[in-house]
Design a protein around this nucleic acid. Structure first.
Lengths: 187, 187
DNA sequence: ATTCCCATGTAAGCTGTTACATGATTTA
DNA sequence: TAAATCATGTAACAGCTTACATGGGAAT
């Protein structure tokens, strides 16, 4: 049982999903390819932590709708409460580039930051949309008892982090300009 | 050439380091074990992107101080400016637990969040200390021309993100309490 | 006509973690 | 006396990415 297994279980604890759907939904907090997810679902099924139902579709490929079992729920609960907190991993090539930003021209550096800024702004819009959708639901998502509660918390967190990184970029950009203002001839 | 190779090159572009040192410094934005770093450094050396000098020490094991070559600098510059932005990866088991937070008792959930909060607060203190050190240096770190500039930007970013996550936790904690205040008998 | 979406799966290869191995000096 | 720090390396394994494979329907 690795972390991805638990990520899949907690997705299915919210509602039954196909592997295809899980691959997309998981993007929020644990990016994984379908080639990793399909075999793992098969393994979880073999271990009786999930079950699946084959759903035939017309015009679309058939799909397997997976559900979590009672054993799966128990396993998940146990892990949440007993697994010690593990380090968080961040792998982001942009950060490598920032570290060496002094090697390139300030103009190029600015371009790099603006590119990042645009991607983040787009992401922020999508997050805000999702949050609005959740908040419009019948059972309030801010309620601990809501099945959406955990998901809502994660979206709020992501929105805050994305917004904060945008602020950081706005703070940093003027610093690149300063170095271009300097070369004023002293005569 | 993978991302870690470039991460190592940009570290060495700042100043020469041993593999041991690189392993520690890299924690800031690309966590990797020494078992991954030592063989990669050997490969970079074979490719003439870095060189090393054997430094004998007394009372401590000898070490190899690696430096980046002109070819290494060129390769790094090229990558920074031509490599398209790649997706960012986040792998954090805490987020999985948050997603399924509704499965456990609000008290246990609060414990989980407080634990996270303490770890983040400790991290924030360390970051603030490092930033103060950098800002006390002779050549201003806020200057694009400073060798520390990129590193300074990353520390500022990390500090912002850590602080924002702490704010998020403070925002979320009262939501767990609400569900415990509710069971007030209506008579 | 081409690309995207739906949907599941396998295979090859690269990336990353954990454990093994060594050994003197310093700190708790 | 036990653990941590410095310092480098290898081996085995687990995790993850990219590519291959299939195929209808819808959108551009």
């Amino acid at each position: 049982m690795n972390a991805l297994s638990y990520a899949l279980l907690c997705m299915l604890a919210r509602r039954p999903c196909s592997g295809y759907e899980l691959t997309k939904l998981l993007q929020l907090f644990w990016q994984a390819q379908h080639s990793q997810i399909y075999p793992l679902l098969a393994k979880l099924e073999k271990d009786k932590l999930v079950t699946f139902e084959l759903v035939g579709q017309t015009g679309k490929p058939d799909k397997k709708i997976y559900s979590i079992t009672d054993r799966g729920i128990a396993e998940l609960k146990h892990w949440i409460q007993n697994q010690p907190p593990s380090m968080q991993l961040e792998r982001d090539e942009f950060l490598i580039k920032v570290y060496a930003i002094g090697l390139i021209q300030p103009e190029a550096a600015e371009g790099l930051f603006r590119e990042r800024s645009e991607a983040l702004a787009a992401r922020r819009s999508r997050l805000e949309g999702e949050i609005r959708l959740m908040e419009a639901e019948e059972l309030p998502v801010t309620d601990f008892a809501s099945k959406q509660f955990g998901r809502y918390l994660l979206y709020q967190r992501k929105l805050r982090l994305v917004s904060e990184e945008l602020d950081w970029i706005e703070w940093a950009l003027p610093l690149f300009r300063l170095s271009r203002v300097v070369p004023e001839p002293k005569a």
